[in-house]
Design a protein around this nucleic acid. Structure first.
Lengths: 224, 224
DNA sequence: TAGATTGTTAATCGATTAACAATC
DNA sequence: TAGATTGTTAATCGATTAACAATC
């Protein structure tokens, strides 16, 4: 019922790198679809993302057989399949914890909503912030976490609190039933098994850029 | 002159994964230093970050010999060495291009400045934005890019423009002498060799989190 | 000294790429 | 059919981990 081709070979969790590339494939496929294309080959898809064509086929084959020999991949069909695989063929209610500058920016960020992630609750421990309204949502104290998470069936949280508070708040999130944390605080969170964390550290990324620029004296390519 | 231990073994560019971990080591070392500690072993440093101790030693050994057998690493000394290696022992002037919600958040984000990255110029193509002042900086049109980049010796740019504009603006940045781009737009940029790009795609990260949560039925650990 | 811990080699593991029979 | 392209196996490459002599 869910896809027209053969089923996935196994129920193993894909390696991190594969999942990341699948997100990129999906984005590029949507781009091709908007251009009116209907099929794409692994070579074309790979070239547009600077990824080897065998890698594209192998990544996709991890989840099942989606291609047509001699033809390539049907774009519309592959988009639907990848959305299902990534779990973004439905909406994800999202809690945003920490309404500092970064938090407020995340709230306004369009990229989340357009991928099915809806921020449905705001939390902050600062009494100045509690009760304030941003984008139609009222900031609640962390004490309200358990109730709101349960009522709104929230499984994911974006964490944009200061580094010192991050682990403590993460513990609360876990206790209140959150299953996944997108962590913007510059600390390595420790969470129990069964809870997922993805870290987004902007400074680490910028430091990497500085390193690359410093170690590139013209002529060598580092387009990664 | 620059560090008290033996010099690096070679001048090769470190793999991406190594550089990312070195940023994490540095952050954790700074944390230990604030706690008043003076030395740390690879096991202790690794444990605090969920990284194997052999990996810690190997990563550091890539850049030189910093440790003392039987003692570990002297924290103050290692911090200085890693700052130098990452190229953040000096300030990096940074241009911010695109003053939408995300751009304005990046401008206010403290994490950059505290790591030595100073936003010194703002650019946007929107006539509504040009001339406006944010945090004491006036938004300039992209036509002013070349002059400002050269006058202020800017080598790095954070790019937070809409996806449709990203490649075009990136081309301009490169033409005007930018050497490194921190790309927040959800597209894969194509740049000439000698120019570095680091992509930060918040939706990709959130999709990864959704995938992990969806594929974790309690009991299995995914603390990555 | 004895104990601790490094830097490094060798072993293992996983990820990427090339090659090609099977398929449309 | 001939040409194109898949899925997959085998070969390659790189990254991680274990083990240990060297060192303080």
């Amino acid at each position: 019922m869910r896809d027209p081709r053969r089923d996935p070979p196994a129920a193993k969790v894909a390696p991190k790198a594969v999942v990341g590339r699948v997100s990129l494939y999906l984005r590029q496929l949507e781009h091709f679809e908007r251009q009116g294309r209907t099929t794409v080959s692994s070579s074309q898809l790979g070239e547009s993302l600077s990824i080897n064509n065998a890698q594209v086929r192998k990544d996709l084959a991890f989840f099942g057989q989606f291609g047509y020999p001699g033809v390539g991949y049907r774009i519309e069909e592959l988009i639907a399949a990848l959305r299902h695989i990534l779990g973004i063929d439905h909406e994800w209610p999202l809690a945003l914890v920490g309404l500092g500058n970064l938090g407020r920016a995340l709230l306004k960020y369009r990229g989340f909503r357009s991928r099915g992630f809806h921020i449905v609750a705001l939390f902050d421990n600062d009494p100045e912030k509690v009760g304030q309204t941003f984008d139609g949502l009222t900031v609640e104290p962390l004490e309200a976490l358990r109730k709101t998470v349960s009522v709104r069936m929230v499984r994911l949280a974006a964490l944009s609190v200061p580094a010192e508070a991050a682990q403590r708040v993460a513990d609360q999130l876990v206790t209140c039933g959150i299953h996944g944390i997108l962590n913007f605080a510059p600390v390595t969170l420790s969470v129990p098994s069964g809870v997922s964390v993805v870290a987004v550290d902007l400074s680490v990324q910028l430091e990497h850029l500085a390193y690359k620029v410093q170690n590139t004296q013209g002529g060598i390519s580092y387009a990664g």
